[in-house]
Design a protein around this nucleic acid. Structure first.
Length: 712
DNA sequence: ATAGGGTTAG
């Protein structure tokens, strides 16, 4: 057996001198040239490959090595396991680990961190427990790195299904002396803390792991307490600590605390840390301070995909949909990697903007990228299609989802509700319950909205009572609003009044005005006066309700009272949100404001509307002037109806799209009774489907009928 | 060797 050259020997004794892959390969080559190498040297090369994260070389060399030396050295096993683990090949790493045990090699604290990381990533609870047992058996439980990895493992477990209150046995097997300290039957919930308490020495990673574990599992106070304790141990918070606790202030909507952290990061030179920056962007966004989010983003010296995602989400969460889309486009331009989160952040913008064309494009991209099985993305697509009036497409996507959660069910239920399919909404709600998914606050808003849009009083009452009785969810404003609306339209004014009066919080003016509108329909002046009195107490400047009240008086021929209210309106200053409708034609959005004649095609639009009106009158249509609120003559009123924003938009749609094309309008406020009547007839005359989405629901007009069945 | 950021329904 020839001896190795001196230089080679020296390198093998201190292999850390080799700094890169080509150095390692040269060394390997030299070794191969000299016949009769010992397995111990090959293992050294292997550990070198592993520490340089050369996955292919490590695995190849290991396989060669164990063919010539069936009992490879422990160093070889540990190296290949470490390399696979850090490359994320968790299953392979665990496979090697069990083979290592089978071949009689004793594991030690050098290998446990990698193995624990792998079984944590695999989310295999049994395996994790077994490995913890193994750690205890070989006496590695006091090792710093092993302890840190164990804490991380239990921290990640907490979110796992069925883990909440199960007993955990491993701790009881730990040293007898600690038995009293650990206590019996500790729950998995506390496992992180228990490992922490048992550690003989702790470093900054130990603290950060326990803090992040608490923060991620919603134990916010505990997390903050640990931060203070960490500081008492003379370990100042570092960038890991800060990025873990920033989400707490986002959740608490505590911008002052968040800002304190922001200042701290600046003072301690963490400004360029991408992790902290994205947490800051998110924190400011959750505190409705989206300008500050954008400010942080702009100041970042280096941005990664997540910085972009945070910024897009920040905009969308704060209803700045166009701004969100702008950043999304920039992100593509900057060749950033689009990730699943990018799409689940941006799709809601399409939903809110009713940007169906863009939504479809994104759907295509999502399918090609293989993201369609992501539950966040699929749910947001279901919502987007439903909000664009494409209920069947939404349902199709929902049916195709491998798993459903409360959010995906609720999105579809709300989609049915908005599109007037109350019975489908209710049956889906039942399906969700049968699927074992508990409805929450929002799910009940959805099902009650469905009932309210279809006039299903009895069903609504059952759900309303059931939500607190069976699910312990106390009704909020939205639930009361749906009930008040339903009862009011059904003419059960007194019941509605009592419901609102019995609420456990002060009903806002908006709720009372729902009832006021019902009083108008059912011509109950007396109750209306009572209601307007309640409204003026909580919301004295609500002009809209005064307008309704004046109309109620007019309808009851109490003209003096009507005039008195109108003077009040004048004194307060008549400010009404202008009615506005939008239509998308050839990827461009055209906006029309009621009475506005400034559109370049207005002349043509007016002609179309007049021609339509002639035909409509032949079909028996007569304008309904009852909802025109102004003091004007009947001719003027007729003209004002002709210029309602949705009619301008529809006429524009008719002249700028081929015959038979569906017309989709978005409107900012409810349309009037007359427009509803008129559009039904228009849909028949022009032979087109016309969809109008207002601020609360959809109307699908077709062949002279509306999907709402005239209940709206 | 072990630790940190962003997402869906109202």
């Amino acid at each position: 057996m020839s001896s190795l050259p001196r230089r080679l020997n020296a390198l093998l004794r201190s292999p850390t001198a080799v700094r890169n892959g080509s150095g390692a390969k040269q060394l390997h080559g030299q070794l191969v040239k000299h016949k009769g190498v010992l397995s111990v040297h090959t293992a050294t090369i292997l550990s070198l490959y592993a520490s340089l994260n050369l996955l292919n070389d490590s695995v190849l060399l290991f396989e060669v090595l164990r063919r010539s030396y069936p009992s490879a050295t422990a160093l070889a096993w540990k190296s290949v396991i470490r390399c696979c683990a850090s490359a994320g090949l968790s299953e392979v790493a665990i496979g090697y680990f069990s083979q290592m045990l089978a071949s009689g090699k004793r594991p030690d604290q050098k290998v446990f961190p990698s193995v624990l990381k792998s079984c944590t990533l695999l989310r295999d609870e049994k395996l994790c427990e077994a490995i913890h047992g193994c750690v205890v058996k070989v006496g590695s439980e006091e090792d710093l790195y092993t302890g840190n990895a164990l804490m991380n493992m239990y921290a990640k477990f907490h979110g796992m299904a069925g883990f909440e209150n199960e007993e955990i046995e491993v701790f009881d097997e730990m040293h007898e002396s600690n038995r009293t300290y650990v206590g019996r039957g500790c729950s998995r919930k506390d496992s992180v803390r228990k490992v922490f308490d048992l550690m003989p020495t702790r470093d900054v990673v130990s603290w950060n792991t326990v803090i992040a574990g608490n923060a991620q599992n919603g134990l916010y106070e505990e997390a903050m307490m640990m931060v203070r304790k960490m500081a008492e141990t003379n370990l100042p918070p570092d960038s890991y600590t800060l990025s873990s606790i920033l989400p707490i202030f986002a959740e608490y909507v505590d911008v002052n605390k968040g800002k304190e952290i922001h200042c701290y990061t600046i003072r301690h030179g963490f400004e360029s840390d991408v992790f902290i920056a994205s947490s800051l962007i998110d924190m400011y966004a959750k505190c409705s301070r989206v300008e500050d989010s954008i400010h942080v983003f702009r100041l970042m010296p280096h941005r990664d995909s997540i910085s972009w995602n945070s910024t897009i989400a920040a905009c969308v969460q704060n209803a700045m949909f166009d701004e969100g889309l702008k950043y999304f486009r920039f992100m593509i331009k900057h060749r950033m990697k689009l990730m699943p989160v990018t799409f689940s952040s941006i799709i809601p913008a399409c939903a809110h903007l009713t940007a169906l064309q863009l939504g479809k494009q994104l759907h295509g991209y999502i399918t090609r990228a293989g993201f369609i099985n992501n539950i966040f993305i699929a749910s947001s697509l279901v919502d987007m299609y439903a909000k664009c009036g494409k209920v069947e497409m939404a349902r199709h996507l929902l049916n195709g989802m491998g798993q459903h959660d409360m959010v995906s069910w609720t999105a579809m239920i709300m989609g049915y509700a908005l599109n007037g399919h109350a019975l489908e909404a209710i049956s889906l709600f039942k399906k969700m319950e049968m699927d074992g998914v508990r409805p929450n606050y929002v799910s009940f808003i959805a099902v009650l909205t469905a009932c309210s849009h279809a006039g299903l009083v009895t069903e609504a009452q059952e759900y309303f009572d059931g939500m607190s009785k069976d699910y312990g969810i106390s009704p909020g404003l939205e639930h009361y609003a749906a009930m008040a609306d339903l009862l009011g339209r059904a003419g059960k004014l007194q019941e509605a009044y009592e419901l609102i009066s019995r609420m456990e919080f002060e009903p806002p003016g908006s709720l009372w005005s729902t009832l006021l509108a019902a009083c108008r329909v059912h011509r109950n002046v007396e109750l209306a006066e009572n209601v307007i009195d309640r409204i003026t107490r909580v919301d004295p400047d609500n002009i809209g309700t005064l307008v309704i009240m004046s109309n109620i008086y007019s309808a009851a021929k109490r003209y003096e009272d009507a005039a008195r209210v109108r003077i009040m309106i004048k004194q307060k200053g008549f400010r009404k949100t202008p009615a506005c409708s939008w239509i998308e034609v050839k990827n461009k959005v055209h906006a029309f404001i009621a009475g506005d004649e400034s559109h370049p095609f207005y002349g043509k639009i007016k002609e179309v509307l007049q021609a339509l009106l002639d035909q409509m009158e032949r079909e028996g249509y007569a304008p309904d002037l009852s909802e025109v609120l102004h003091d004007m003559g009947d001719d003027e009123k007729r003209q004002s109806l002709q210029n309602h924003s949705e009619r301008l938009a529809i006429a524009f749609g008719i002249i700028s799209t081929p015959p038979g094309t569906a017309i989709r309008i978005i409107k900012n406020i409810r349309m009037c009774l007359d427009c509803h009547k008129a559009i039904k007839i228009m849909s028949k005359i022009v032979g087109r489907e016309i969809t109008v989405r207002d601020n609360s629901r959809f109307h699908h007009f077709k062949d002279g009928e509306c999907s709402c069945g005239d209940y709206w």
